[in-house]
Simulated assay, not measured.
Amino acid sequence: MPGRLFLTTPITEVAERLGVSAGHLPGQPPRRNIQPGQEVVALTPNGLTRMRWGMIPVGRVNARGRPVMETIINARSETVFDKTAFQGVGRAVVPVDGWYEWTGEKRRKTAWRITSRDGGLLLFAAITDTWLAPGGQRVDQLATVTCEPNGDVAAIHHRMGVLLRVEDLQTWLNGAEKEASALARPWPDGLLNVEEAGDVDWSAP
């Protein structure tokens, strides 16, 4: 939807593939188990940075004027530009090598690894916000945007993250809402590889 992410490609190579500078971002060890609440690399209109995956919606309200209480990990593309809770958000892109989903009953779940069939990066559309935490700490945060699954993913999950082509990044980051919304569609069938992920140490970072 995605549930967890992984990024093993070096940051300098990520920047090169995206046609931007790595800037101040230091290198990082391969990350094979990125969980909600942890930092991810994100491309914003100002370049590459790190942001918390999961938006704490302090001060945001729903259409009934009630506070939004839950941390937002994923936002539905069908309503992300319409919901009161998402007014004024920014946009970003999360580059990853792939993500994980699970199927099956509790305690008997099967983990699945989803990657690009050509071995390239996958670029998730995201929305962003800033949380002013107690003590004045500023936390830049994001939520990935989801849509209906394509044929590759449908057998393991009813949603998938919105994936972007490199040539569409600037439209998502800087385009009008109508232009960005048009990109929020399932990835074409046949471009993703789905395989069991029984080799992952889920206790490792």
Results as ranks from 00 to 15, higher is better:
Phe6Trp: 13
Thr110Gly: 06
Ala180Tyr: 07
Arg32Asn: 09
Arg60Ser: 05
Val139Met: 10
Pro30Glu: 08
Gly23Phe: 05
Thr171Phe: 01
Glu70Ser: 13
Ala143Tyr: 02
Gly3Pro: 00
Trp53Met: 04
Ala92Asn: 07
Gln170Arg: 13
Phe81Gln: 11
Pro205Arg: 14
Glu148Cys: 08
Met55Tyr: 02
Asp129Tyr: 03
Gly65Leu: 00
Ser203Ile: 00
Trp102Cys: 08
Thr146Pro: 06
Thr49Trp: 04
Val162Cys: 11
Val153Arg: 00
Val94Ala: 08
Met55Gly: 01
Val145Arg: 01
Gln28Tyr: 05
Thr115Asp: 10
Phe124His: 13
Thr144Arg: 01
Ala111Asp: 03
Val41Thr: 09
Ala15Met: 03
Ala154Gln: 15
Val94Ser: 11
Glu179Arg: 08
Thr8Phe: 00
Lys109Arg: 15
Pro57Glu: 03
Ile34Glu: 05
Ser181Gly: 13
Gly161Ser: 11
Thr79Glu: 08
Val200Lys: 03
Gly90Ile: 12
Thr128Ala: 00
Ser21Ala: 12
Leu164Ile: 13
Val68Thr: 12
Lys106Tyr: 03
Glu78Gly: 09
Arg4Phe: 10
Met51Thr: 09
Val200Phe: 01
Leu169Val: 14
Gly135Cys: 03
Trp202Ser: 12
Ile34Trp: 08
Ala180Leu: 07
Gly198Gln: 10
Glu13Ser: 04
Thr8Cys: 11
Thr128Tyr: 00
Gly47His: 05
Asp118Met: 01
Ala155Glu: 14
Arg60Thr: 07
Met1Val: 12
Gly104Tyr: 02
Gly190Phe: 12
Pro186Leu: 07
Gly120Leu: 06
Gln38His: 06
Pro186Lys: 08
Gly90Asn: 10
Ala204Asn: 11
Arg50Gly: 05
Ser116Cys: 11
Asn74Pro: 07
Ala92Leu: 04
Val58Met: 07
Thr9Leu: 01
Leu121Lys: 06
Gly47Met: 06
Gln170Asp: 15
Leu25Trp: 04
Asp140Asn: 11
Arg50Trp: 05
Asp199Lys: 03
Ala182Ile: 08
Glu13Ala: 13
Arg32Leu: 05
Ala85Asp: 02
Thr79Met: 05
Asn33Ser: 09
Arg31Asn: 03
Glu101Asn: 06
Pro26Glu: 08
Met160Asn: 10
Ala204Cys: 11
Ala42His: 01
Arg108Gly: 12
Ala85Cys: 09
Glu39Gly: 09
